[in-house]
Amino acid sequence: MTLAQLKQLKQNGEKIACLTAYDANMAHWVAQAGCEVILVGDSLGMVVQGHATTLPVTLEQMVYHTEMVARGAPDAWIVADVPFMSDATLAKGLEAAQALIQAGANMVKVEGGLPVLPLVHRLAELGVPVCGHLGLLPQSVLRHGYRTVEADEALIAAADALVQAGAEMLVLECVRSETAETISHSHAVPVIGIGSGPDTDGQVLVLQDVLGLTIGRTPSFARNFMAGADSVQSALRAYVEAVKNGTFPES
């Protein structure tokens, strides 16, 4: 899978399926199910390590998990999160991106809008594909909680700025459906939604939510695809099929 192929899927109106994965075994099965994109998310801090937030996840840990996922799914487009404070300065952000790309990621994901524009611009100049993340920002949970705080107009402006700076994919988390649709239709880059309605170019969920393995409260926008499935593999295929045919998420 290449970035050009992902952009072609968007142009053709075909939905893009994405899931998180954190190890080689599950990355293999996620890719086999038909997911074009695998996100090595700092969500591993919560669903793998047992933390209450993503904040304890280190760059070294992200590199370790990215290496495993890259070995398990060498043909998928792998996006790796730049973890908390690893992009606090331009120099640190460049070092983090270098480490994740050298670990096997095809693209790095950074949270936020205006503050990360210098990093996005410099990475684009250096040929590093960047995914922006807007809406609910898990790395800002201590200040804002698990909610989207920016107004629709600010989110649209931030998306415009990220793409202009060189971002070649966007993730919108818990953004109003109408706003997510506007952003998706305004840019040629793929826009992937999570809890942001059905009108983005693709969907992403945390793997454990899809398999009904989440400890504690499952996000309201998620769906347990293991319900009625006879295997993990069939549940993953059901997720991909639901994204592709537009039955997930529901309008």
Results as ranks from 00 to 15, higher is better:
residue 151 A to N: 14
residue 241 E to P: 03
residue 27 A to H: 14
residue 191 V to R: 01
residue 247 T to H: 09
residue 97 A to F: 02
residue 235 A to C: 08
residue 181 E to P: 03
residue 179 T to H: 10
residue 170 L to D: 00
residue 17 A to K: 05
residue 195 G to M: 11
residue 127 G to Y: 06
residue 2 T to G: 07
residue 194 I to T: 04
residue 78 I to N: 00
residue 130 V to G: 03
residue 92 K to M: 11
residue 113 G to D: 14
residue 91 A to D: 15
residue 236 L to F: 09
residue 221 F to L: 01
residue 137 L to W: 01
residue 208 Q to P: 04
residue 115 P to H: 10
residue 19 L to I: 12
residue 140 S to P: 00
residue 152 D to A: 14
residue 153 E to M: 10
residue 141 V to H: 05
residue 117 L to H: 07
residue 71 R to I: 07
residue 12 N to L: 13
residue 233 Q to H: 11
residue 128 V to S: 06
residue 205 L to K: 11
residue 26 M to R: 13
residue 174 C to K: 08
residue 146 Y to L: 11
residue 157 A to C: 14
residue 176 R to G: 03
residue 161 A to I: 01
residue 171 V to Q: 00
residue 21 A to Q: 12
residue 223 R to L: 08
residue 175 V to E: 01
residue 153 E to W: 08
residue 221 F to I: 02
residue 82 V to Q: 01
residue 163 V to Y: 00
residue 99 A to Y: 09
residue 153 E to I: 12
residue 104 G to F: 14
residue 234 S to C: 05
residue 245 N to D: 15
residue 62 M to D: 03
residue 83 P to N: 07
residue 7 K to S: 09
residue 43 S to N: 05
residue 164 Q to C: 14
residue 15 K to H: 08
residue 155 L to V: 11
residue 146 Y to D: 06
residue 137 L to D: 06
